[in-house]
């Protein structure tokens, strides 16, 4: 019994993500003798993450590559990495992820979503038209957040500023006209969306760790024979790890490109840094109190980070 798995994603055709996912899919088809096939619908043609989830429910699609936040209705805990300024470096993320990824993957699995290795998207940074060094510099800034994204609004509000919600399509012209002057995004994102020509400064503190999930509907995955399931998991894990690795390189390259463009990276003083961290910690606490984040795994992350920092 052959199973075809239709996957939607917002990654455009031709991007590194699509290339690697297709390579993985081809290998799965080859090894399983076409018993398991993937079909991709890239570039967001199937709609945004909400529309894709609806289509998975009615079985038009059987999976998708999602931004992690879109899956919180299946498992609240998948948002535990999305705490502002929680990690100071990629190495800290790697250490924590080594311990905590399983928690997310298993949690989503219990929620009916089979997912494999998480695909790290790197850090989002604060990018702006005029320098932002301290928390106080955020006052009177016109900070963009995606419209209808409560998590972003909450995290920006926690720094004591009211953000401006706009559709993605308005961001570039918004930056040009001065409607907004500050955005938060990853270096790759800034280059791909060509916002980098409109900003001058990047505050060199990792703001938020973002990652994506390659998810398959559990009902569909269970139709695959156990042996083939193992093949799919093995091959896809490998492909996704490759994406994770290449994405890291791409972010490094993008940072170089941004520097070459003449964008200045601002590193705050130790004192200012402490203030950022303290404000961010309060934001995390607020998310936990509001029930948007489960407390136990959040505490576990803190413990892991403490342990890691002590050993440095």
């Amino acid at each position: 019994q052959a199973v075809t798995i239709k996957i939607a994603t917002i990654s455009p055709e031709g991007s590194m993500w699509m290339e690697k996912m297709r390579q993985g899919a081809n290998q799965v088809a080859k090894v399983t003798d076409n018993r398991v096939k993937f079909k991709f619908y890239p570039g967001g043609v199937m709609g945004n993450d909400k529309a894709v989830l609806r289509k998975i429910r009615i079985n038009q699609l059987q999976g998708g590559a999602f931004m992690a936040g879109s899956l919180s209705s299946f498992f609240q805990g998948n948002q535990i990495y999305a705490q502002p300024m929680k990690f100071k470096s990629q190495e800290e993320v790697d250490y924590v992820r080594g311990h905590m990824d399983a928690y997310i993957i298993n949690g989503l699995g219990d929620g009916g979503i089979v997912c494999f290795t998480l695909m790290g998207g790197g850090f989002a940074y604060i990018m702006s038209k005029s320098p932002i060094t301290s928390v106080g510099d955020l006052k009177n800034r016109k900070i963009w957040v995606p419209d209808n994204d409560k998590a972003s609004v909450d995290s920006v509000s926690s720094f004591g500023v009211s953000p401006i919600a706009l559709p993605l399509a308005d961001v570039r012209t918004g930056l040009q006209s001065g409607l907004i002057d500050t955005v938060g995004t990853s270096p790759v994102g800034a280059v791909v969306l060509q916002w980098h020509t409109e900003i001058k400064y990047i505050t060199n503190i990792p703001l938020l760790y973002v990652y994506a999930v390659f998810a398959i509907d559990k009902k569909t995955f269970n139709k695959i024979s156990p042996d083939d399931q193992k093949i799919v998991s093995g091959v896809m894990n490998q492909a996704l790890q490759e994406i994770d690795r290449l994405n890291r390189q791409d972010n490094v390259k993008a940072i170089e490109a941004l520097k070459k463009q003449g964008i200045e990276f601002i590193t705050p003083s130790q004192e200012q840094m402490n203030e950022w961290m303290a404000t961010a910690a309060k934001a995390s606490q607020k998310m936990i109190n509001a029930g948007d984040l489960p407390k136990a795994p959040a505490d576990e992350i803190d413990a892991l980070l403490e342990q890691y920092r002590k050993n440095q």
Binding site: N140, D147, K150, S162, P163, I164, A165, L166
Partner: peptide
């Protein structure tokens, strides 16, 4: 709201 009072209604756009 945005230009006069530096604020806004988050759910207005959706």
């Amino acid at each position: 709201l945005r230009n006069g009072f530096d604020t806004g209604i988050v759910w207005a756009d959706p």
